[in-house]
């Protein structure tokens, strides 16, 4: 009780410092509500003139992220003023693999100039609500994916029980399909599905009295593994 949190939304970070935005500062984060990805931003005007006519564009990116509507910034944004904007995002845009995979390059225009910045999209906002793999399919897929396509990570310093871990992850669309206990050790079998249709299978070993968990990942597209590992870290440490 008290340990279960809803979808994890990272705190906003400064994406465009005022010094690079001719007085415009943008901080932001990403979240997911009701199956929809949102880019949440705060625009702050640190210049001496009002700002108007805001617009946004994304560069091609790994997951085809694209604004689902035009950017709404209540304006004009007066000097020393600050305003929040929530931009729905779809995944119908052009795809080009980025390094790192979740890198997103953004252009923002206003009446002053055009500004560019990059940000990282936390992978769990791309995890779909229907990512719970059928048990039979999970078993077959786990067997089918060769051992060389498995990567292991240690997630250190996790002070949750297996059930708490499971429910924290489930709130972020990482689903537990089966839980087994072998000689006191809890084993969680989990799945997630990314917006581009890539499935990832996970096994999480939780040993009694050990705050370090062992995460094993299997996927037919292993380039997502490192991002998925980071997502587990993020969720289990927040």
């Amino acid at each position: 009780i008290g340990n279960v949190t809803p979808f994890y939304t990272p705190a906003k970070q400064v994406w465009l410092p005022a010094a690079r935005g001719k007085g415009l500062e943008i901080s932001g984060t990403f979240t997911r509500r009701n199956g929809q990805i949102y880019m949440e931003m705060t625009f702050s005007n640190k210049a001496m003139q009002a700002m108007t006519s805001f617009a946004i564009q994304f560069n091609k990116n790994s997951f085809g992220l694209s604004p689902a509507q035009s950017l709404q910034v209540q304006g004009p944004l007066q000097p020393n003023g600050s305003v929040d904007s929530s931009l729905p995002i779809n995944t119908k845009g052009p795809v080009q693999k980025m390094e790192p995979l979740t890198n997103l390059q953004v252009a923002i225009k206003n009446n002053v100039d055009v500004f560019y910045f990059s940000c990282l999209v936390p992978l769990h906002v791309l995890c779909m609500e229907d990512g719970m793999m059928d048990k039979r399919v999970f078993l077959a897929t786990w067997k089918d994916i060769p051992a060389q396509n498995e990567v292991q990570y240690t997630i250190e310093n996790v002070n949750y029980t297996a059930d708490q871990v499971s429910s924290k992850l489930q709130n972020n669309n990482i689903f537990t399909i089966a839980k087994r206990n072998v000689e006191g050790q809890d084993m969680l079998y989990q799945s997630l599905k990314l917006t581009n249709g890539i499935w990832v299978l996970a096994e999480l070993k939780i040993q009694p009295g050990n705050i370090n968990l062992i995460l094993s990942l299997k996927s037919r597209a292993m380039e997502v593994a490192s991002g998925v590992h980071q997502t587990f870290e993020l969720i289990l440490h927040n």
């Binding site: 089966a178 087994r180 084993m187 079998y189 096994e203």
Partner: peptide, 20 residues
Amino acid sequence: DGDVDLDDSFSRLAESRTHP
């Protein structure tokens, strides 16, 4: 019963991963 088979399969998977 297919569900029982599936439950067994997960138990066997967990066993095999503990004692490879």
